[in-house]
Write a protein that binds this DNA or RNA. Structure first.
Lengths: 231, 231
DNA sequence: GTCTATAGACGGATAGAC
DNA sequence: GTCTATCCGTCTATAGAC
């Protein structure tokens, strides 16, 4: 008699939300936030046009939800890995390379998840660090802040001799390298015909990135100490 | 009698084009391509709404013109600097740091040009490497291609012992660091309250970037040689 | 070359039936 | 929760007067 009830049992209560989030993740990655319309998005998700506003309130709120869903667990994993390493080290400072791997590992593992949409998200995330909309960058910054503080502390203990402002810049360079590497798809092919499958080989990429970033973070201090800023 | 004629003499023939390009550069940097409307753009430029289509044909063609105007001279300067260095070296291979400086110098000099709009363009460019629209990335790649080939050759001569595919990846990492550093404005402040004026001190930034990138490019090869790709 | 006016399509959001 | 129908604003592009 109540067909609606039996249908609802087949379809879990939050499936619509999830379908919307997955479709949004992919379309935002492919075309950007502005260029993705609610009509495209709901069509791809196989849900009604009005469902986005019902479940999320607005397009902006949906964008926020897309990032919260993944970033919270991603940064928690980063912090957990750092906790594990520090417990293991029992008070001794960590190796720089180990901290780097703890940071980049979360993103690299996700890039191999092509099915679950993780790869879509990682590419979207890498681009969004430099999104024109201040509101979006600020959301990302807020979601990153706890992990950022945690890793900054770990690097400070690992590199006690490095000036604080230099460390901040080198961490900034590190995020840049990672963000761009995960977001960009064309440059490598542009420079040289690189095998497409290499781009998503997380183990190979991790080795390459770690070697590059470790050397950069540990680089000798530049001599331009005469370039002093005015008070 | 002919007031229109005297007015036209005050206003050079291409001033309208230039005003449009300058306004577009700034608004594209601030809000992105999609979020910038022709109405905002022409209002800011102080020209008529129809002027963009008259002078450029379409919004897409305007976007292309914005990049061509700056990138052509920027990459020509990069190549000229490399020519100069190689002539000076008279056959000996160049130092890695010198090649790096020849590449990043063009962008860093532009970032100091706040008045002429150079800074706007650099931040826009840094973000556009990872633009969602394939058409735009492809344009950028095309405008970069000659300089890219030239620098790849210079690095190959400077680092003859480095495997070609490893070099390509390290150059990719280098572009990423530079692109992100020039495009991003928030991360440095997020990690630590960095003095805002430092972000645009090109000499300081050049020293920091060169130290980081040189070490990264010259890093020992990673040991993951067992990770072989299938044919 | 510059302007006004408008065509014509598409955007996000919502009211209200079911 | 889901759906249809629709409001109303904004968009790019262009026609045609000056």
């Amino acid at each position: 008699m109540e067909i609606a009830v039996s249908l609802r049992q087949i379809k879990p209560p939050h499936e619509t939300r999830t379908r919307i989030l997955d479709a949004a993740e992919e379309l935002f990655m492919l075309h950007g936030f502005e260029a993705t319309s609610m009509r495209q998005l709901t069509a791809k998700a196989g849900v009604n046009l009005a469902a986005v506003n019902y479940h999320f309130g607005s397009k902006d709120a949906l964008i926020e939800a897309v990032f919260r869903r993944r970033l919270d667990v991603m940064n928690a994993a980063r912090i957990a890995e750092l906790d594990r390493l520090e417990k293991e080290a029992a008070g001794r400072p960590l190796a720089t390379a180990a901290i780097i791997r703890a940071f980049i590992g979360a993103g690299l593992r996700m890039i191999e998840d092509a099915r679950g949409g993780g790869r879509n998200f990682i590419r979207l995330l890498g681009r969004t660090y430099t999104d024109p909309q201040k509101q979006i960058r600020s959301l990302i910054g807020q979601l990153y802040a706890p992990a950022m503080e945690r890793f900054k502390g770990a690097f400070e203990r690992a590199l006690p001799q490095m000036p604080r402002d230099e460390l901040v810049w080198r961490m900034h360079f590190m995020f840049g390298t990672l963000a761009y590497t995960l977001a960009a798809t064309d440059t490598v092919q542009l420079i040289a015909g690189c095998k497409p499958e290499d781009r998503y080989d997380a183990r190979l990429l991790e080795a390459r990135l770690t070697a590059f970033l470790q050397a950069g973070l540990l680089a000798p201090l530049h001599e331009a100490k005469d370039v002093k800023k005015a008070a």
